[in-house]
Simulated scan of single mutants.
Amino acid sequence: MKAWGAGVIAVLALLATTAVAQDWTPLDADNTLILETTQGRVIIALSPQMAPQGVARIKQLTRQGFYNGLLFHRVIDHFVAQTGNPDNKDGGRSALPDLPLEAVFRLSDSVPHTVVAQPDGATTGFMGAVPYVAMTDRHIPPASDGSLAVRAWGTHCRGVLGMGRGEATDSANSELYLMRDTVTRLDRDYTVVGRVVSGFDALAALKVGEPSAQPDAMNHVRLLADMPAAERPKLEIMNITGAAFAALVKAKRAEKGADFSVCDITVPVRTVP
């Protein structure tokens, strides 16, 4: 996992012992993906608000057992780890129809989110654990109900999960990719569906190659909601609307200064008894 600065580490240590209950929340069991890989467990928070069809497809295939045993057939350092193809190479797909691109969505006040920065002409923030970029609301008229909706997209920070596709824009199907580094040039060209919240070390440890001589695999993929209670990871995620998260962002902004970006933040998780 990317190293935090000393100031941010101090804030996290303080929050772990003093943060009030509303600063932490259980993982959304219906939208948490658990990957048991050959390098360890990776836990991903899915975002149906960003990509409802993509998230629904991943959940459907997961519940069918489709992803179990599939290899990470293409792992490129400082870029991506690809998997989810039944023939373990680019171009494979499930028997289900291809999906339309869901790279851009409408962000409004009715969708829970938290702004962390406002670079010129845009805002950046989080929907749950997933980072996004949105157009500024300047000069955009409100809707007839008085709400304001702007164009937004998931941004490709390290740990983001997206759906691979072919040359055709609307050809996402079953392939997945995990970002091993921040590469925002992919923004608005691919469907972002979630982000890693735990297991960054396992993601970093995947063997590099196209494929590698001994590629890693997703041994077992489940939704948290489908796991027996005794097997569920005992984790809570920080509430992005709480004071603890605001303090974390403030500390990171102070540490990074003018270089701060939304990709400098990962929403923390903690173990609970």
Rank of each mutant, 00 (worst) to 15 (best):
residue 249 V to D: 11
residue 94 S to I: 01
residue 148 L to Y: 04
residue 250 K to F: 07
residue 239 N to H: 14
residue 52 P to K: 00
residue 114 T to R: 02
residue 148 L to F: 10
residue 237 I to A: 05
residue 94 S to A: 13
residue 114 T to N: 07
residue 142 P to M: 00
residue 240 I to T: 14
residue 162 G to W: 12
residue 66 F to E: 11
residue 88 N to Y: 13
residue 17 T to I: 11
residue 131 P to W: 09
residue 203 L to D: 08
residue 233 P to E: 00
residue 77 D to F: 14
residue 51 A to N: 12
residue 135 M to V: 07
residue 155 T to K: 06
residue 245 F to R: 02
residue 239 N to R: 12
residue 133 V to H: 10
residue 134 A to Y: 08
residue 145 D to G: 02
residue 229 A to V: 00
residue 207 K to N: 12
residue 3 A to D: 15
residue 3 A to T: 13
residue 224 L to H: 12
residue 130 V to H: 09
residue 26 P to W: 08
residue 180 R to L: 10
residue 134 A to R: 01
residue 19 A to S: 12
residue 57 R to Y: 10
residue 169 T to L: 15
residue 33 L to Y: 09
residue 39 Q to H: 15
residue 18 T to I: 14
residue 99 L to G: 08
residue 205 A to Y: 09
residue 221 V to H: 07
residue 64 Q to G: 03
residue 222 R to E: 15
residue 248 L to S: 03
residue 219 N to Y: 10
residue 203 L to G: 07
residue 196 V to S: 09
residue 43 I to H: 06
residue 236 E to G: 06
residue 207 K to Y: 13
residue 143 A to G: 03
residue 91 G to W: 15
residue 86 P to A: 07
residue 83 T to I: 06
residue 12 L to T: 06
residue 174 S to L: 10
residue 2 K to P: 14
residue 26 P to G: 07
residue 52 P to G: 01
residue 55 V to F: 14
residue 245 F to E: 03
residue 58 I to M: 03
residue 115 V to T: 04
residue 183 V to N: 14
residue 121 G to H: 04
residue 202 A to G: 04
residue 107 L to M: 07
residue 121 G to P: 06
residue 263 C to A: 00
residue 150 V to Q: 08
residue 64 Q to N: 10
residue 208 V to F: 11
residue 160 V to E: 15
residue 25 T to V: 14
residue 102 E to L: 11
residue 74 R to A: 08
residue 48 P to H: 09
residue 97 P to E: 04
residue 113 H to N: 01
residue 50 M to I: 08
residue 129 A to W: 12
residue 63 R to Y: 06
residue 1 M to V: 14
residue 251 A to V: 01
residue 67 Y to T: 00
residue 100 P to K: 01
residue 122 A to W: 04
residue 142 P to H: 00
residue 263 C to W: 03
residue 139 H to L: 10
residue 127 M to H: 08
residue 7 G to W: 13
residue 253 R to V: 04
residue 190 Y to G: 09
residue 11 V to D: 09
residue 216 D to P: 14
residue 221 V to T: 05
residue 174 S to P: 14
residue 143 A to M: 00
residue 166 G to E: 10
residue 206 L to K: 01
residue 147 S to G: 10
residue 68 N to R: 00
residue 40 G to A: 12
residue 136 T to K: 03
residue 1 M to R: 08
residue 54 G to C: 05
residue 242 G to W: 03
residue 131 P to K: 04
residue 256 K to T: 03
residue 262 V to C: 08
residue 27 L to W: 11
residue 201 D to I: 03
residue 46 L to C: 11
residue 16 A to W: 06
residue 189 D to I: 00
residue 38 T to E: 11
residue 104 V to D: 11
residue 203 L to M: 04
residue 105 F to E: 08
residue 198 S to Q: 09
residue 79 F to D: 12
residue 34 I to C: 08
residue 208 V to Y: 05
residue 37 T to C: 13
residue 131 P to F: 08
residue 232 R to Q: 05
residue 260 F to L: 04
residue 71 L to F: 05
residue 240 I to C: 06
residue 98 D to A: 02
residue 161 L to F: 11
residue 213 A to S: 13
residue 217 A to M: 03
residue 100 P to W: 01
residue 151 R to M: 13
residue 225 A to L: 06
residue 194 G to I: 00
residue 105 F to A: 04
residue 247 A to D: 15
residue 243 A to R: 15
residue 97 P to I: 01
residue 110 S to L: 09
residue 187 D to C: 08
residue 259 D to G: 05
residue 272 V to H: 08
residue 36 E to C: 04
residue 74 R to V: 05
